[in-house]
């Protein structure tokens, strides 16, 4: 299966702000992580991240992040408008 590059915005709730999730993600799944921007304070962490790997592996990585409570959006953010 071909590798692909997918770009996301991750939003970490406050209780996950101090956990090294991007490091854990790279160890857990066969994806290359690349942080392009980050903005973190005590309440929330917002990180722009690209993931490179097989699409199934990227999907698993996204599902894992979401299972922990991280919001994962495509870089376009809200595609669905009124």
């Amino acid at each position: 299966m071909a590798t692909q590059l997918t770009r996301f915005w991750l939003v970490f709730p406050h209780h996950l702000v101090t956990r090294p999730l991007v490091y854990e993600l790279a160890r857990e799944f066969a994806v290359v992580t690349n942080i392009r921007q980050a903005s973190v304070n005590a309440e929330v962490g917002i990180v722009s991240l690209s993931l490179e790997g097989e699409s199934e592996e990227i999907a698993k990585a996204v599902a894992w992040l979401e299972s922990l409570g991280v919001q994962v959006d495509p870089v376009e953010m809200n595609i669905i408008e009124s």
Binding site: Q71, D73, P74, V75, I79, E81
Partner: peptide, 26 residues
């Protein structure tokens, strides 16, 4: 769910030659 639909739309816009007004034509 809303976020899944969002993500699929983003993938379609990225993969096919469609002009998504609020994605690649934004």
């Amino acid at each position: 769910a809303y976020d899944q639909v969002n993500r699929l739309c983003s993938e379609i816009a990225g993969k096919y030659g469609w002009g998504f007004v609020n994605v690649n034509l934004r």
